[in-house]
Design a protein around this nucleic acid. Structure first.
Length: 551
RNA sequence: GCGCCCGUAGCUCAAUCGGAUAGAGCAACAGCCUUCUAAGCUGUAGGUUACUGGUUCGAUUCCAGUCGGGCGUACCA
């Protein structure tokens, strides 16, 4: 569609120029209702005020300059308050259809950001326990966004930021040690806010197998911490890997201390008089105009930095690496903190224009009507691995990504578990599997159909309304990818794929594809099927689900 | 209290810079399998887009206020 749209908007643009009207950026919409044509412009309405002329009159003047022929624009009309609607030649779409199979797995990719680099940081859970369903949304969202960016030409670096030295990790170490001690000392006290997950016992048992009771009198928490970290990270990475997520960089906060980057950042704040000492702590001056309510502590009275300082130093590091785009994905519980980080960077003179922060709202989990409260410290945690084995990774990926990030999402676990076959993901995947079934049939009836498609394909035979509608929708795919990528919203792809599947199922119902009596028409329909299959597959690749051959 | 986000069909959510009659899935009801997979298709029902006002050719979308929900408001991250 993109190319088709460009042609139409050029014609429209020059018609406006010919009329002597002021230039406008031309935006062509694809009307929701077919009766309004294939493309629609509201330009007459936007010119109305400036020209002090009724929009319909302006529209009339514009379309009088547009020539009608059978090759491109077959009809124009003025509708409603002054919309200019264009009806386009079917052949345009049929020709575009050929590009789908020509481009194959690349159909829909663009070179908009060719040669540019992007860094996407997400997940970034500290290694204190396995990933759970609270991480799921971010995980799946980031996976899809990374691919989406690649489809528009970016070279994407996937990054995971973690801290193996903070309070959370000390807490894990204490918890592991307590479980270890409890193996031979029933009464050994467990820390009040310790991690009670079963994995903590596993780590303790592992240590016991290696060392027996020899660590009984050791109060060296570092060893327990290290074992805990190694074990947990291993579990986390396995979960990620099972989902096809591979981070290129695991960035340890500790390395910022080793490279003195924290100190340097602190010095920079002091030099610029952006920080001050009060009550034994160091405070960063904040600006209410940036939406931050009050000054924040960056170094505690203990001498340890709060998370803000290393976060700022970390982003300086990323900026210096020279990416064209830096994306952070945070949950809404971090909604305020990113502002502090960005403000810190700005106040030090860094350009933060390239940093995009994606905030996703929390997911509420429900079991029937009961809302499920989850806490790492109460052990009623629903781990991601469990969710995957309950509903499958495709359903999970689909479910987490199918909605806009900025909307609160209710996840009904009992529904996902009990009625997994009802999951909307199957609607899409079934369309793909169905096509594969047709193609298996084609192999038997017309063994040489692939050659015939090249030599004797006759697209003139495509003329039913279902076929034309389907073809038009397929050609919108490249635009859909661009639009989803522009706003980092992979759910738009799913919404689109739904209409593809819907129209395919309808086409299938009304049109027999393989007809041994009529090879020519069979070939044209096989061509449509192959094109649908390709678009579905490419869309699945972006959102991160598989394209099954059978179901 | 203050800040950010949200409020659309019974439920979960879409709606392309502000566009035409607000759309899907699930749930409900009525139909469709001797024919390429019925995990599908067709039809019915379901809405004052939380409420009130404003901006304009036009508002689910932008602005103000009210009500309701989530998150934050740490010398936790």
């Amino acid at each position: 569609m993109s190319k088709i749209k460009d042609q139409v908007s050029e014609i429209l643009q020059s018609a406006i120029k010919e009329c002597g009207f002021p230039e406008r950026e031309i935006v062509l919409d694809i009307p929701k209702d077919e009766k309004f044509g294939d493309a629609s412009s509201n330009v007459a309405m936007t010119l109305s005020k400036e020209l002090k002329t009724p929009p319909r009159k302006i529209a009339e003047e514009i379309i009088s300059k547009i020539s009608i022929d059978n090759k491109l624009i077959t009809k124009t009309e003025i509708a409603g308050a002054g919309f200019i609607n264009f009806f386009l030649s079917d052949d345009l779409y049929k020709n575009e259809l050929k590009n789908i199979l020509g481009d194959g797995n690349d159909y829909g990719k663009s070179e908009l950001h060719k040669g540019q680099t992007a860094n996407l940081e997400w997940v970034s859970a500290n290694p204190t326990g396995p990933l759970h369903t609270g991480h799921g949304r971010q995980l799946c969202l980031g996976k899809a966004i990374a691919i989406l960016l690649e489809w528009t030409g970016y070279k994407v670096t996937r990054e995971y930021y973690y801290n193996d030295a903070g309070n959370q990790m000390n807490n894990l170490a204490k918890s592991v040690r307590a479980r270890y001690m409890q193996i031979f000392e029933n009464e050994f006290p467990f820390p009040e806010y310790g991690y009670v997950g079963e994995y903590v016992n596993e780590i303790a048992n592992m240590i016991y197998e290696k060392h027996g009771e020899s660590l009984k009198d050791s109060d060296d928490l570092d060893y327990f911490k290290k074992e805990g970290e190694v074990f947990t990270f291993d579990v986390i990475k396995k979960t990620l890997s099972n989902l096809g997520i591979h981070h290129d960089i695991f960035f340890n906060e500790t390395s910022l201390y080793e490279k003195k980057e924290i100190e340097k950042t602190l010095e920079a704040f002091k030099e610029k008089d952006l920080s001050y000492e009060l009550d034994g702590a160091t405070w960063l001056k904040m600006d209410e105009n940036e939406g931050i309510q009050k000054d924040k502590v960056i170094v505690k009275t203990t001498g340890e930095p709060t998370y803000r300082l290393p976060d700022i130093a970390y982003h300086i590091d990323k900026i210096k690496r020279g990416y064209d785009l830096i994306i952070d994905i945070f949950g809404s519980d971090h909604g305020d903190t990113y502002k502090e980080v960005l403000y810190g960077l700005k106040s030090l003179g860094y350009n933060t224009d390239k940093i995009k922060v994606i905030i996703h709202q929390m997911v509420t989990f429900k079991m029937g009507n009961e809302s499920v409260k989850m806490s790492k410290r109460s052990d009623n945690v629903y781990y991601l691995d469990e969710l995957i084995s309950d509903i499958g990774s495709d359903a999970m990926q689909f479910f987490y990504v199918m909605r806009g990030a900025n909307t609160h999402l209710d996840f009904d676990l009992s529904l996902a578990k009990d009625h997994s076959e009802k999951n909307p993901v199957y609607y899409l995947q079934y369309a793909h599997a169905r096509i594969c079934g047709i193609l298996r049939n084609a192999d038997e009836v017309f063994p040489d159909y692939k050659k015939d498609l090249i030599n004797s394909l006759n697209l003139d035979l495509i003329n039913s309304p279902e076929e034309m509608k389907l073809i038009k929708i397929l050609t919108e795919f490249p635009d859909e990818v661009l639009s989803a990528a522009k706003t980092y919203e992979p759910h738009k792809i799913i919404t689109y794929l739904n209409t593809v599947a819907e129209n395919f199922h309808r086409f299938y119902h009304n049109n027999r594809v393989i007809d041994p009596e009529n090879k020519e028409i069979s070939l044209s329909r096989i061509h449509i099927c192959l094109s649908v299959k390709q678009v579905l597959k490419n869309g699945f690749d972006i959102i991160g689900i598989t394209a099954p051959e059978r179901m």
